[in-house]
Structure formats: structure tokens, C-alpha cells
Measured scan of single mutants.
Amino acid sequence: GTEIELESKNGQREHYTATSEDEARKIIEKAVRRGIKRIELRGASEQLIRDMQEIAKQIGLQYRTDGSL
């Protein structure tokens, strides 16, 4: 699965493990709508990382991946 670590603007951290790319995408989209400061992805697919970079650029988000592409 993909591990997703979120940090909201007030510094609250949340951790999710998505079993599918679809689920990961839903978690990320929800977080973005809620207003999130930072997202870290571990074990994400190349496609998901590309999507994440696109989203991050659009809304000026900090993100990090573990680089295991």
C-alpha cells in the first residue's frame, strides 16, 4: 500500500495507509480540499507521484516522497 502522512496548517498530523492508488488519490484530494500544509508519500506509484506533483504545483503545497520510484 501507499503510506500517506498529512500535516494540516495547525500542525496536526494524520497517517493513512491506502490499499489502492484510487484510495490514495481520494485521501489526497480530501486533504487538499480541507487545506493541508504538507504531504508525504511512501510507496506511491510513479503515476501517483506525478499526479501529486501536479496538485502541489497548482496549490503551492509542500510534498515529499521517499524517492522509491
Rank of each mutant, 00 (worst) to 15 (best):
R64P: 11
Q47N: 10
T17G: 03
D66S: 04
K37M: 13
N10D: 14
A44L: 02
E3H: 10
S45C: 05
R64A: 15
G67A: 05
R34D: 10
K37H: 11
E14A: 09
N10P: 03
R33H: 11
T65R: 04
K30P: 01
S8T: 14
A24T: 03
Q62H: 14
K26T: 10
R34Q: 11
R64D: 15
L61C: 15
Q47M: 08
K30V: 11
I59G: 12
I55L: 14
R38K: 08
A44P: 03
M52Q: 00
L41G: 00
I39E: 00
E5D: 11
E40V: 15
R34H: 10
L69A: 07
S20R: 04
D22Y: 12
E29R: 10
R13W: 11
Y16T: 01
D66Q: 05
M52K: 00
A31L: 10
D66P: 04
L61F: 12
R42P: 01
E23M: 07
S8N: 13
E40W: 15
R64I: 15
R13C: 10
I49M: 09
L61S: 03
K57F: 08
Q53I: 15
D51Q: 09
G43I: 01
M52I: 15
V32G: 02
T19V: 13
K9F: 14
E14L: 11
Q62Y: 12
D51K: 09
G1Q: 11
L41M: 08
G1T: 13
Y63D: 10
K57W: 10
Q12I: 09
I59K: 10
L6Q: 02
I39K: 00
E7S: 05
S45L: 02
A31Y: 06
K30N: 13
K9T: 13
E29Q: 12
T2R: 02
H15A: 07
Q12W: 11
E40R: 15
S45M: 02
L6P: 01
I28N: 00
R13S: 06
G67S: 05
I36K: 01
M52H: 00
E14P: 00
T65H: 13
Y16D: 00
K57G: 06
E46Y: 06
T2Q: 03
L61I: 11
D22N: 06
L41P: 00
I36C: 10
I49R: 07
E3T: 09
Q47E: 09
E7Y: 13
L6F: 10
I27E: 01
R34M: 14
D22H: 08
R33N: 09
G11P: 01
H15N: 09
E3Q: 09
E7L: 14
E5T: 14
S20E: 03
A56E: 03
E23Q: 08
Q47F: 05
I39Q: 00
L41K: 00
K57R: 14
G43N: 13
G1H: 12
E29N: 08
L41D: 00
Q53F: 13
R33D: 04
L41S: 00
Y63H: 08
R38L: 05
E5R: 13
N10T: 12
R33L: 14
R50I: 07
A18D: 06
G67K: 04
D51Y: 15
K9D: 12
Q58K: 13
E14N: 06
E40I: 15
G43V: 02
G11C: 13
D66L: 04
R50F: 09
Q47V: 06
T19C: 13
S45P: 05
I4H: 01
Y63I: 15
D66C: 15
K37Y: 10
R38I: 05
E29W: 15
E46N: 07
T19E: 08
I39N: 00
E46L: 12
A31T: 02
I28T: 01
S20M: 02
G35E: 04
E40A: 14
I49N: 06
K37W: 12
E3P: 02
K37V: 12
Q53Y: 12
A24P: 00
E14K: 07
E46T: 09
E7C: 11
I27W: 10
E46V: 11
R33S: 09
R50E: 05
E23L: 05
N10S: 12
M52N: 00
E54L: 09
E54M: 09
K30E: 13
S8E: 10
G43W: 08
S68P: 06
N10G: 09
E40Q: 14
T65K: 07
D51T: 13
I49F: 06
E21V: 07
I4N: 01
E29L: 14
G11Y: 01
A24S: 02
E14D: 05
Q53G: 06
E29M: 14
Y16K: 01
Q12P: 04
E29H: 09
A31C: 06
R50D: 03
R13P: 03
Q58C: 13
Q62W: 09
G60F: 09
I39G: 00
R42C: 06
G67F: 04
V32N: 01
E23Y: 04
T19I: 11
G11S: 03
E46Q: 11
I36D: 04
S68I: 11
T17E: 05
Q53A: 11
R42M: 05
L61M: 07
I49D: 05
Q62F: 13
T65Y: 06
R13Q: 07
A31S: 04
T2F: 13
Q12D: 12
L61A: 08
L48Q: 01
E40H: 13
I59P: 02
I27H: 02
A31M: 07
L41A: 01
L69G: 06
Y16A: 02
E54N: 08
I28C: 03
R13M: 07
A18W: 08
S8W: 15
I27C: 04
I4M: 03
G35P: 03
R42Y: 09
E21F: 06
T17M: 12
R33M: 12
A24M: 05
L69H: 04
I49P: 00
K26L: 13
S8A: 10
G43E: 02
I49H: 08
E3V: 10
L48S: 01
H15M: 12
G11D: 02
E14R: 09
K57E: 10
I55S: 01
A56Y: 06
I27T: 01
M52L: 14
L48D: 01
I59A: 15
G43R: 07
Y16Q: 01
D66V: 07
E54H: 05
V32C: 09
A31K: 02
Y63S: 10
L69T: 06
S20Q: 03
E3D: 08
Q12H: 10
S45I: 03
I59M: 15
L41H: 00
S20F: 03
R33E: 09
I4G: 00
G35H: 05
D51E: 10
Q62L: 14
E54W: 10
A24C: 05
T17A: 07
M52S: 02
G60W: 11
I28E: 00
T17I: 12
R33I: 10
L48P: 00
S68R: 03
R42A: 05
I4A: 00
Q12S: 09
Q62K: 12
R64C: 15
E3A: 06
S20I: 02
Y63P: 08
L61E: 04
R33P: 03
E3R: 09
D51H: 13
E46S: 11
S68D: 08
E14I: 13
E54T: 10
G1N: 13
K9N: 11
R38T: 05
D22P: 06
E40D: 06
R42H: 06
M52D: 00
G67E: 08
I36S: 03
V32E: 00
D51G: 04
